[in-house]
Design a protein around this nucleic acid. Structure first.
Lengths: 239, 239
DNA sequence: TGTACATCAGTGAACGCGCGTTCACTGATGTAC
DNA sequence: TGTACATCAGTGAACGCGCGTTCACTGATGTAC
């Protein structure tokens, strides 16, 4: 059965190599948290790793590739967290799933603000993520969110929505049709468009809190504020 | 009448000085647009200004102060743009004012993505904005937005809102009471809380577009998408 | 109106620092016969 | 089982670069008498 050549058990060297790469990613994340993405430096990672600076080039092609690894790692950590939270909710409780997803995003973002900033903050100047490697991990949350909405629609659990008189312009309807086809969805244009707003609004709320836009003193009850925002968004989505 | 010592006409030297500072800010913004905030460098600005690097220290105390100047400049440019757009709408057309504000934010953000990122993106590592200088300019948009909401409420132009059964927890109500007192507002808790969501959602939508979260191909009809988002947010706000 | 002095803008050299990346190399670890 | 060779991890020096900030200085511009 050697057609699947990947199935061999890893050699000690391979294991050591994987461990070192994992260490590099871990140290890179720590560096990210302290100094930000723009200041991420291979030399600093090498220092923390206890190795001469040129040695990291055995594991990582260049600085941009380290950024890519960190990006993928962060996307997957967030994705795992979201999946875990949503999976813990009853499959028919779509509103509960939505709230679990929102809270998972916020909790992770507050715990890992630097990684969150890398994923959802200002683009890193001069860095372009390689789509073929990041698109999968990078779309896990939205795919999951859309899954909840579409599941609710199919189950007939989607209430009348806010402002049903709002019309969808044809050009936008075209985009939504592509999305519907690509993701195999059933929900109509209005629901999908509403979903996009809820999606961007969720991250808008989290970003404001994580990036310090609220100021130091304005909101003491941040958890309650976010809970309220989720409640309203839930209504907007029709859940 | 020398008590108001500030009223003297500026000397040529003062005018030259003001002009140079304006040039520094302008060049700093260009640099920001190309290389990002973290890479903003006094030496590069000095080069563009055609002057030796130490000369800029005659005008700007250090790198952080240049960042502060850029921050204030950007906040005021955005504030002017928003004020201009809202002022152009009939004072009783609260929904129109809201849409004008939203579109002004988006247009400015798309035109000046680097400045937008400085204001609303990831925090610049190691930089803390001096509140006493930035709070005023930095709150112009939210003050204006709240003004529209409160004006609508006082004019009795605020419709029934989404999900009126959503309760405001006491801790959050306390925060909202402080805001109401501080800003001299009339609107009740539910409206204020809704206003916060609309505020964060508006910037969430703009940030996703400016920061490239939509991906390259998903939405061709970005203008229409944003228009739709504004429509739904308008309903959420009760306008 | 003319002179003496103070203020200011800009210079150029220097400080100490960190960065990404390349390259020839040494040793250790694995593999093929 | 033993030997020859290939692979790989890590070294250390070097390249050329840009950065923030300080400091003593030169000249030009303004001000007071």
């Amino acid at each position: 059965m050697p057609p699947t050549a990947e199935a061999k058990p890893p050699t000690p060297r391979e294991r050591a190599r994987a461990q070192t790469i994992a260490d590099i990613v871990r140290l890179g994340r720590e560096h990210l948290a302290v100094h930000g993405a723009a200041a991420l430096s291979l030399r600093a990672v090498a220092r923390d790793l206890g190795v001469v600076s040129s040695a990291v080039y055995r594991y990582v092609e260049n600085r941009d590739e380290l950024l890519t690894l960190l990006l993928i790692d962060a996307y997957n950590e967030l994705g795992d967290e979201v999946d875990g939270a949503v999976d813990a909710v009853d499959g028919q409780d779509f509103a509960g799933q939505f709230r679990a997803l929102g809270n998972a995003v916020r909790n992770w973002a507050l715990r890992e603000p630097a990684s969150y900033a890398l994923l959802f903050g200002s683009p890193v100047p001069g860095y372009q993520a390689p789509g073929e490697r990041t698109t999968g991990p990078g779309t896990r949350v939205i795919v999951r969110l859309v899954g909840i909405f579409d599941g609710a629609y199919r189950a007939g659990a989607m209430d009348a929505e806010v402002g049903p008189d709002v019309v969808i312009p044809p050009k936008l309807a075209g985009d939504l049709a592509s999305i519907r086809a690509e993701m195999g969805l059933a929900a109509p244009d209005a629901s999908l468009a509403r979903g996009v707003l809820v999606w961007t609004s969720l991250f808008g709320a989290v970003s404001f809190e994580v990036f310090g836009q609220y100021g130091a003193d304005t909101f003491a009850a941040r958890e309650e504020l976010f809970g309220h925002q989720l409640s309203v968004l839930q209504k907007v989505a029709g859940l």
